[in-house]
Nucleic acid binder design. Structure first.
Lengths: 110, 110
DNA sequence: CATTTCTTATACAATATAGAACAAATGGAC
DNA sequence: GTCCATTTGTTCTATATTGTATAAGAAATG
């Protein structure tokens, strides 16, 4: 039962966060970024689980960063988006665009 | 373990199809519309399962149409998007927009 | 060694998916 | 007219994938 044509909605959001964060992203920061931008409060577990899956699919890659010199500042696991991840984002965007094109006339009042 | 902040990606696509089809949408047509616009081939079972879920959530409503006078033209179950469905679409769109705003500088080359 | 920052593990709910079974309509064969 | 094969359309069943929260674990330092 193959899948994988489109990203899940959280996958998409997290990938977009990684793009903006330019390789400085670790779990906590990704979570904060999403919350600040969208108001959506995701649990930290949800973030890591999704990052894990994205890495397994080859959309992102993770590596270990240096610990920062502060109370509890342990080494971070940093995430970076890969080419495949960017392409997946583009496909998702294109799909929604195709479905949306010229829809104004049908929308009506809400 | 509540959920329901955002639409799933297929839910979103199907809602968009319903907007365009303006109350003339039944399962087979929704499927065809999506395939023609996006090239994505979804099984008919997937379409109906999603429509079912969307109706349960109050995003769409279904009713029975007249049979058309043609070979096998049995009565159709028609689907129409409701106000709540349109609002859900807007929230999804807004969320992606927030995550996307000003991202060009970070995108780089693929 | 208690506290802080960060990650992993665990468990379960919600979505996505395919394929097969089922249902209703009708054009012909007879 | 009445079967019935064919067509159009829907529902059922079963499973994979994603989304989610909470708790447990691990490393750093004052």
């Amino acid at each position: 039962m193959k899948r994988g044509q489109l990203l899940g909605s959280l996958e998409q959001i997290i990938l977009l966060a990684l793009v903006r964060l330019d390789g400085t992203a670790h779990g906590m920061i990704v979570r904060r970024e999403i919350e600040e931008r969208t108001g959506r409060n995701i649990s930290i577990g949800a973030v890591y689980a999704t990052l894990e899956r994205l890495e397994k699919k080859g959309y992102i890659r993770s590596f270990t960063g240096e610990p920062t010199p502060q109370r509890g500042g342990r080494a971070k696991r940093l995430f970076r988006i890969e080419g495949a991840g960017k392409r997946a984002l583009q496909i998702s965007e294109q799909t929604i665009l195709s479905m949306t094109a010229g829809l104004k006339d049908h929308w009506g009042t809400i």
